[in-house]
Amino acid sequence: MIQKTREKFIALFGKEPLIVVSPGRINLIGEHTDYNDGFVLPAAIDKKIVYAVALNDTRQCNAHAVFTNETVSFSLEDVKPTPGWINYLMGVVDQLQRGGYEVKGFDCVINGDIPVGAGMSSSAAVEGGLVAALDHIFHYGMDRMQMALLGQRAEHTFPGVKCGIMDQFANLHGKKDQVMRLDCRSLDFEYFPFNFPEYKIVLCNSMVHHSLASSEYNVRRQQCEEGVKAIQAMHPEVKSLRDATMQQLDEVRDQLSAKIYDRCAYVISEIQRVQDATELLKKGDLQQFGQLMYATHEGLSKQYEVSCPELDFLVTLAKERPEVAGARVMGGGFGGCTINLVKQEEVASYQSYIQSRYKEEFGITPDVYVTTIEDGVTVN
């Protein structure tokens, strides 16, 4: 893919480009905790976006997407939200300009194999790849966390998704065969080896397309904030659900709707599960780790209500199979993939089983991806 992207760039623009590889991400546990100042446990994976980029000595930016065979141009004097994939690139350029970084005209070709809407954060890969490319070309001297925060702001302002920092962080900080526990409040992070060679990380795509820009994602944020406000009235030190305990939530239960209570209960429990999960990784206990994943799915389905019948069915299938240590919906929800920890020698039979049972139930064959944990954004 890297070579094809480079060749396409040379064919279109007639010069040698800088190549940037920008990965998708998985999150083993810690879902919808990032915008509540909690902890997450992501990793970068081998699904990726590839950029070829070079300056063009104009005030124009020209971008060609291989996956749509479409070229879009915009002026650096007129960067504003625009429908389609170009919006993510323009969001990055806008944030650089607002931050006082000089941006000159550039050409780029963008390619990739991250399935859109599958919960692997293709949007963060698009943002992280471009900001790393422009940082390299223009010598901004940004560190990786500055790049991640800029990508997050781009997502907030142009697509309008009020995402937490996890996706952009994982995209830029990934290390091969390591997961990262990120404190989404302090932005401190720690690497933990994911050293289970007898298991593979398998993603099963429900084929239900989700869009995090849908109103439901932002509604969940508002619901969490509503719960925090109620707790704050009795406990002013509570700034977010990260600070809250189940006891404090129970104290204000009669002031909250059942929905708001459930949303907050899920998040408080999930923040603790991430802490427990890293202790299990240190001990090498993948079986108990997997049980936490199942508990997360139950919470996401019943309390946070971001699952769907297709995702619940995939997790139910996983629970029936002894070769699966754990499974859950991954990403924002409302569709996308489940993440499954599957014994390596059983991956092929598991894939066959999932695809046949799912097709019987829903009339469609799900895509299945066997992934590996890889480095974050690389500039070549």
Rank of each mutant, 00 (worst) to 15 (best):
I2S: 13
F9H: 07
F13A: 05
E16S: 05
E16I: 00
P17M: 01
L18H: 03
V21P: 07
S22P: 05
S22Q: 06
R25A: 09
I29W: 14
I29Y: 11
G30H: 02
H32L: 06
H32A: 13
N36C: 09
D37Q: 12
F39L: 06
P42G: 04
A44M: 04
K47V: 01
A52G: 11
L55C: 06
T58N: 07
A63F: 14
A63S: 10
H64E: 11
T68M: 12
S73M: 02
S75K: 10
L76S: 13
L76P: 03
E77D: 14
P81I: 08
P83F: 01
G84R: 02
I86K: 02
G91N: 06
L96E: 10
R98F: 15
Y101K: 15
E102S: 11
K104D: 12
D107W: 03
D107A: 02
G117R: 14
S123Q: 07
V131F: 04
A132L: 05
A132N: 09
H136C: 05
I137E: 09
D143N: 14
R144D: 15
M147H: 03
M147A: 10
M147F: 06
R153Q: 09
R153D: 04
P159Q: 09
K162Y: 14
I165P: 03
M166T: 03
A170F: 03
H173I: 12
G174D: 13
D177Y: 01
D177A: 04
Q178A: 08
L182F: 05
P193W: 02
Y199W: 13
Y199Q: 00
I201C: 10
V202T: 06
C204Q: 12
N205H: 12
V208N: 11
H210T: 07
S214F: 03
S214L: 04
R220V: 08
Q223A: 15
E225K: 01
K229H: 00
P236Q: 07
L241A: 01
R242Y: 01
Q247F: 05
Q248W: 01
Q248Y: 00
D250H: 10
E251S: 02
A258Y: 13
K259R: 15
I268C: 08
I268D: 07
E270S: 12
Q275D: 12
L280H: 11
K282T: 11
Q287I: 08
Q287M: 13
T296M: 12
E298D: 10
V306D: 06
V306C: 13
L311E: 02
L314M: 10
V315H: 05
T316E: 15
L317W: 05
R321G: 02
E323P: 01
A327T: 05
V329Y: 12
M330D: 04
G332S: 02
G332Q: 05
G335L: 08
N340E: 02
L341Y: 00
L341W: 01
K343N: 11
E346W: 09
Y350K: 09
I354K: 12
Y369T: 05
T372P: 08
V379N: 11
N380E: 15
